[in-house]
Amino acid sequence: MKVRLMFKTIVFISSFILLFISCDEKQKQDAAEIIEKNTSISELSIYNLPSTWTTQNNKSIELKELQGDVLVMVMIYTSCKAACPRLVADMRSIEASIPEEKKTNVSFVLISIDPETDTPARLKKFAIENNMDTEKWLFLRGSETDTREFAAVLAVNYKKISPMDFSHSNIISVFNQKGELVHQKEGLGVNNAETVDKIIELAH
């Protein structure tokens, strides 16, 4: 009994030591957070997400590097035979409808919901096959968790239904220069005029 009590006391004391260490760290972290707060990222901005992604060119990228661009985003997977080709076609048609002079600050981003299969090499191949291998187009893959998190932000639902197939929502989303969601269009082959108008309105 005594031994147990002593053990408990030791645990108790050591947890206090840990508490102090962590308080110290906490203050540093708070200071860092105050600095962070002074930047222009708003509460609803996707640039609050800390996730790191890999592009079709095997380059590591953080979302906030895209800050300042209007983003047109969609979640797809490259082995998809049904909905994705049409979503990709919609993206290309949107891209084609934006006047050249407006395109400078617009990025078209396709995020894979199947990061396991969609390696950078595979994304690259997909980009080339679909004539989307220019710097306007960004293909991203991340960890399973970050992908799930990003889908949660976009309100995109998806589920792996077989080793090769996913069932997923078909949503194209537009973000403004600050990373705030400003427009979403759901469906396949729907009229994209509204989406195009929104992008033109935002891009300078």
Binding site: A82, H168, S169
Partner: peptide, 20 residues
Amino acid sequence: TFDFNSVLISGESRKDVDKD
């Protein structure tokens, strides 16, 4: 749940009627 957003319901906001 982790993948709570794996549920696809067709309805006013979800038009994926195929699988679910």
